[in-house]
Simulated scan of single mutants.
Amino acid sequence: MDGVKLQDIIGKPISGEWGNDDLTGKGVPVLRTTNFTNEGVINYDNVVTRDIPIKKIAGKYLTQGDILLEKSGGSDKQPVGRVVYFDGEENKYVFNNFTAALRIKDKNVWNSRYLFYALFANYLKGGTVKYENKTTGLHNLKVDLFIRNFTIKKIPIELQEALASKLDLVSRLIDLRKHQMNDFDELVKSRFVELFG
Rank of each mutant, 00 (worst) to 15 (best):
I67Q: 03
P156V: 07
A101K: 02
T34M: 05
V30R: 01
I57F: 12
R148V: 00
D51F: 09
G25Q: 07
K56I: 03
N96R: 00
G19K: 05
T24L: 13
L176W: 05
K125G: 00
P53T: 04
F116M: 07
V143W: 02
D66I: 08
N46P: 01
L69D: 10
G88A: 05
G65M: 04
F86D: 09
G81C: 04
N122S: 13
E186I: 09
T128A: 04
N149Q: 13
N108D: 15
R191F: 15
D185A: 11
K26T: 10
G197K: 01
Q7A: 02
D168F: 06
G81T: 04
F146M: 14
F120I: 00
G74D: 03
L176Y: 12
A162H: 10
Q7W: 04
N108A: 10
V30L: 10
M1S: 13
A118D: 08
E70M: 04
S190Y: 13
D76C: 00
V188P: 08
P29Q: 04
K154A: 14
L145W: 05
S15R: 06
P13M: 11
N122H: 09
L124N: 15
G3P: 00
Y117I: 04
Y114A: 10
V193A: 10
I42W: 02
Y114Q: 07
N46I: 05
F86C: 11
I9M: 12
G3T: 10
V94A: 09
N149C: 03
Q160D: 11
